[in-house]
Design a protein around this nucleic acid. Structure first.
Length: 545
DNA sequence: CCCAAAGGCCAC
DNA sequence: AAACGTGGCCTTTGGG
C-alpha cells in the first residue's frame, strides 16, 4: 500500500453543477468532465485525489481514466465521527458529508443540520482532527484503505463481473422449466405447488404465504415452530419433500431468475452497486442486485472471457486468525501456522475434531451460550485464553453500554435509544421481573454485537488492505487500456475474483498472495499470524473451492 | 396508492 | 422463552 511512500500531494475535486472545481493548495481551476480527465491524465506524480468517490470517479472511468489513490471525504467523515480521541468530530452537526440526502433546510424539521463545507475545507478539518486523535497513523491507514476500496468498487461496477447469460438461462430452464409469461409460475414450480396442495388437502394454498402455509400445516396435523426450511426438515410427512423443493426453487426464481438477468446483466457483465462500508462494522453492502448473496446454484454463469481466466481467492478462516492477531494469542497463531486453523486447533488437543473447532470458534465470535457452539467455547478458552478473553472483554464493554474499537480505530455506534430505555426501565425502583429480564436481554444483545464488532470490523480492515494492495499490484502487472489489464471483478468480505489473461494467471496468483502478506503486516506488524489463501484459477466461478 | 414490518432465505 | 454476529432482498400483509 501507499503507506510506505512519501506523503502524496492532495488535489481536491468538488463537483459544482456540470463542472468540477479542482483545487491544489491555493490554486484552483474549473473544468468540465473532459477537462477533469485531462487534468488527471496530465499528472505524473500520482497525487491523492480528495473527493466523494461515487460522485466524481465514475466520470473519469467513463473517459477511461484511472487514478492511483484517493481520500474519500464521506468515508473519512464516518470513521472520524466514531474514532477514539476525536470527540470534536462526534459533536459536529450533521451535514451532507454525512448523508447526501440531508439538505440544510432539514434544520426546520428539528434535525441539527449545518451548512455543508466545501470539499477543500472539509479535508483541512479532517486532517487537523486526525492530528489530535489517539492513533492518527492507524486512522490514516484505515481511511486510505477505505478510499482505495471506494476506487476499486467504482471500477468493479464499471467493469462488471463476466456473466454468461446463456449459462444462466440453461440453469433456469433445467431447474424451473421454460420462462413463463410475466407474473406466472414456471412449470416446475407449478407442479410442486400442486404436490404440496395435494399432500395437505389444501387446494387453494399459496405456499409463498407463511400465514396460509402455517395454517394448512396445522390443519394437516403437522406441528412446526415455523414454516422455515430448518424446522420443516425435522418433520416426517409427504409434504416436506415437495415443499422444501418448492422453497428452494421459488427463491431462485424470485431473487436470481429471468427478471434479475434482465435487470442486472448487460453485454455479458453483471454490474453490482457496492456500498463501501455500508455495514456498521465496515463491511461492504450492495444496493440492488444482491451481489453479496450470489447463490451457489448460479455461480456457473460467472465465466471468464475466451483467453482469460478467473483467479478466485479467499482468505482461510479469516475472522479467527484476525482474533488471534488482535489478542496476540500465540497458541492460536501457532495452531494456524502453515495449515488449516481448525485442524491445528484439533492437533493442539483443544477439541476432538475439525467440525467442533469451527462450531466452537464461531460460537465464541457470535456469543453462543447454548447448543454445540456454546458447549465448546469453554474448551477453547482453556487452550486459547488470550483470544477468548478479548472477545469476552468486548462483550462486557458492550453490556455496560460502552463502545468498542477495531484494530485501526473504527468505533462501534453507541447504544440506541430503545436499548438505553430498556436498561433504564430494568434498573428502576419499580422494575418487576419482566422489566429486569428485558434489561438483561438488551444488555446481552448489545454484548453480542460489540463482541462480534471488533472481530468482524478488523477482518474487514484486513480485507480492505488486501484489496487495496492487490489493486495496485494488478495495475503494475498489465499495460495498455484498463480493459486489457488483469482486473478485480468481485469482492465478497474475504474473497476476491480477478479476471485476467490466461498468460498472466501465475503472476496474478502471486500478486494476490503477496497482497495478503502485506495486509497481515500492515495490521499486525511482526506478530506471527499468517493469512493463507485458497486460490483457484478457473474458467467458471463454480469450479473454485 | 404507498410504505413498513414480518417471515423467510441467500451470502459471509 | 429464548437461544449465535453482519447484512440484502423477496413476498405477503396490513395500516395509513
Amino acid at each position: 500500500m501507499d503507506a510506505d511512500h512519501a506523503p502524496a500531494r492532495a488535489v481536491v475535486v468538488d463537483p459544482e453543477g456540470d463542472s468540477f472545481l479542482v483545487r491544489e493548495g491555493e490554486r484552483s481551476l474549473r473544468v468540465d468532465a473532459a477537462g477533469l480527465a485531462a487534468v488527471v491524465l496530465a499528472r505524473r506524480d500520482d497525487p491523492r485525489w480528495v473527493w466523494d468517490t461515487p460522485r466524481v470517479y465514475p466520470v473519469l472511468l467513463a473517459a477511461g481514466v484511472r487514478v492511483g489513490r484517493a481520500w474519500d471525504l464521506r468515508l473519512a467523515r464516518a470513521v472520524l465521527r466514531r474514532a477514539a480521541g476525536t470527540p470534536e468530530a462526534a459533536a459536529w452537526p450533521r451535514d451532507e458529508w454525512d448523508d447526501p440526502a440531508l439538505a440544510a433546510d432539514d434544520g426546520a424539521l428539528g434535525i441539527d443540520v449545518a451548512p455543508t463545507p466545501p470539499a477543500a475545507e472539509e479535508h483541512r478539518r479532517q486532517l487537523s482532527l486526525l492530528e489530535g486523535a489517539e492513533r492518527p497513523g492507524a486512522l490514516r491507514l484505515l481511511i486510505t484503505a477505505e478510499s482505495a476500496g471506494a476506487l476499486a468498487a467504482a471500477e468493479m461496477r464499471v467493469t462488471g463481473l463476466p456473466w454468461s447469460a446463456s449459462e444462466h438461462l440453461r440453469v433456469l430452464d433445467g431447474l424451473l422449466g421454460p420462462r413463463p409469461t410475466a407474473g406466472a409460475r414456471p412449470a416446475r414450480l407449478e407442479a410442486l405447488v400442486e404436490e404440496v396442495r395435494a399432500a395437505l388437502t389444501a387446494p387453494a394454498l399459496n405456499p409463498d404465504s407463511p400465514v396460509e402455509l402455517s395454517r394448512a400445516l396445522r390443519l394437516a396435523g403437522i406441528a412446526v415452530a415455523s414454516t422455515r426450511a430448518d424446522d420443516l426438515r425435522r418433520v416426517e410427512h409427504p409434504v416436506v419433500a415437495p415443499l422444501l423443493a418448492y422453497k428452494k426453487l421459488a427463491r431462485l426464481h424470485a431473487a436470481n431468475g429471468w427478471h434479475w438477468l434482465d435487470a442486472w446483466v448487460r453485454d455479458g457483465r453483471f454490474h453490482p452497486d457496492y456500498v463501501v462500508s455500508g455495514v456498521v462494522t465496515g463491511r461492504w453492502a450492495t444496493r440492488g442486485g444482491g451481489a453479496l448473496q450470489l447463490p451457489r446454484q448460479i455461480r456457473s454463469a460467472v465465466v471468464a472471457d475466451p483467453g482469460w481466466c478467473l483467479v478466485v481467492a479467499d482468505a482461510a478462516q479469516l475472522e479467527p486468525r484476525v482474533l488471534a492477531g488482535l489478542a496476540h494469542d500465540r497458541a492460536m497463531a501457532t495452531a494456524g501456522h502453515g495449515r488449516d486453523l481448525y485442524d491445528g486447533m484439533v492437533a493442539s488437543g483443544a477439541v476432538a475434531d475439525r467440525a467442533s473447532a469451527k462450531v466452537g470458534m464461531l460460537g465464541a465470535l457470535y456469543g453462543a451460550t447454548s447448543g454445540d457452539g456454546g458447549r465448546l467455547v469453554p474448551r477453547l478458552a482453556q487452550r486459547f485464553p488470550r483470544a477468548l478473553a478479548l472477545v469476552e472483554q468486548a462483550a462486557r464493554d458492550g453490556e455496560r453500554g460502552g463502545t468498542v474499537h477495531t484494530l485501526l480505530g473504527r468505533g462501534s455506534p453507541p447504544p440506541g435509544a430503545a436499548h438505553r430505555a430498556a436498561i433504564a426501565a430494568g434498573g428502576g425502583v419499580e422494575a418487576d421481573d419482566a422489566l429486569q429480564r428485558r434489561a438483561r436481554a438488551a444488555a446481552r444483545d448489545r454484548g453480542r454485537f460489540t463482541r462480534n464488532f471488533v472481530v468482524q470490523g478488523t477482518a474487514a480492515e484486513w480485507a480492505l488492505c488486501w484489496l487495496a494492495d492487490l489493486r495496485q499490484r494488478l495495475w503494475l502487472l498489465g499495460d495498455g487500456e484498463l480493459a486489457e489489464r488483469p482486473q478485480l471483478v468481485y469482492f465478497l468480505h474475504d474473497e476476491v475474483i480477478v479476471h485476467a489473461p490466461v498468460a498472466l494467471a501465475a503472476e496474478v496468483e502471486a500478486a494476490v498472495r503477496a497482497a495478503a502478506r502485506t495486509a497481515g503486516r500492515l495490521l499486525f506488524g511482526d506478530f506471527p499470524i499468517d493469512f493463507p489463501l485458497d486460490v483457484a484459477v478457473v474458467e467458471r466461478y463454480s469450479d473454485a473451492g
